[in-house]
């Protein structure tokens, strides 16, 4: 399909064609359709989850998550760049580790940012002050030992209820997490996790990471068919079309080897980058650029032309 073989369009006979009229009719149709569909179906608006609503609806999940933050075992604590330095963390595309190369540019220390700082900044009760002092005076190993033991005890307790946890050496952890739960349920933690010391702010990185570490958010997502296994990337809440155009990106997550790969995100987005580039460069790709000639779809589009040419 060399350009030299394609005649100029103005070499062909013409017929009257009113572009402005066509656009006006098209605009009227899209306005009417958009307005009509909006009137009929509205748009989804499921309220966001707040730290207050999470801690009220699922206090045991909240507590377990706070303990995991102190123990350094939560998803956020183990995440790596761009949030924190974690040896070995970060996805790779083959040998290429772009996640690590980008570095830690949005620093997040989950134990400090999600639990300890909010407790220090809240009006302190004597037992919380003492618990914080005990935590700060302990070695990292001791802190890890207390929080891991408490996490295990909560795991074994009926419904993960802290009140039903077996007695043990948990140090100050139960006091700290119980106080954090109280702050969260009162609504004050939502504000405290935003960037401290600034009045105007727009970044919700810390509260979102904390929320995402718990199970409550993903449970709500599952109810709304939004999780990865439910092709959630192309869904939205309720019975709305969602981002159907992301079907191909979602597709890769459903199949092996990506379904079970720890580098799935990096690998899939590398594939999508290549495919996107291929879309842009279709006219230059041998084989792909010849598909229109091999198929008969163009005979349908230009059937009048081909019929009269015969």
């Amino acid at each position: 399909m060399k350009s030299a073989q394609v005649p100029e369009s103005d070499a062909f006979p013409t017929r009257r064609y009113d572009l402005v009229k066509e656009f006006t009719i098209a605009l009227a149709v899209t306005v009417l359709l958009s307005a009509g569909l909006a009137g009929l179906f509205s748009s989804p608006n499921v309220p966001p989850t707040t730290l207050a609503s999470w801690s009220t609806a699922a206090p045991n999940d909240f507590t377990a998550t706070a303990v995991a933050e102190l123990a350094g075992t939560s998803t956020s604590a183990q995440y790596g760049p761009p949030y924190n330095h974690v040896p070995g963390a970060g996805q790779k595309i083959g040998p290429l580790g772009l996640q690590r190369a980008a570095g830690v540019r949005i620093p997040v220390d989950p134990a400090e940012d999600f639990v300890l700082r909010p407790l220090r900044q809240a009006p302190e009760q004597p037992e919380v002050t003492a618990a914080l002092a005990q935590w700060n005076a302990a070695s990292a190993d001791q802190q890890q030992s207390w929080s891991s033991a408490y996490a295990d005890a909560l795991n074994k307790a009926p419904d993960g209820d802290p009140a039903k946890a077996a007695p043990g050496d948990y140090g100050p952890v139960p006091v700290l997490t119980a106080r954090l739960l109280t702050l969260a349920r009162a609504g004050s933690l939502d504000g405290q996790l935003l960037s401290p010391g600034r009045f105007y702010q727009t970044a919700y990185t810390k509260p979102m990471l904390f929320l995402a570490d718990g199970l409550y958010l993903s449970d709500r997502a599952t109810e709304q068919h939004l999780t990865g296994a439910q092709w959630g990337m192309m869904n939205e809440t309720g019975n709305y079309p969602g981002q159907a155009w992301l079907w191909l990106s979602t597709f890769w997550y459903q199949i092996d080897p990506f379904k079970s790969s720890k580098n799935a995100d990096a690998e899939i987005w590398a594939i999508m980058a290549v495919l996107s580039l291929a879309l842009i460069l279709v006219p230059f790709i041998p084989g792909i650029r010849s598909v229109p000639r091999w198929t008969r779809v163009h005979r349908l589009v230009w059937r009048d032309y081909y019929r009269t040419r015969r």
Partner: peptide, 10 residues
């Protein structure tokens, strides 16, 4: 333009 090539008919 007020005209188009005749093959533009789809």
């Amino acid at each position: 333009p007020e005209t188009q090539p005749v093959y533009m008919a789809s």
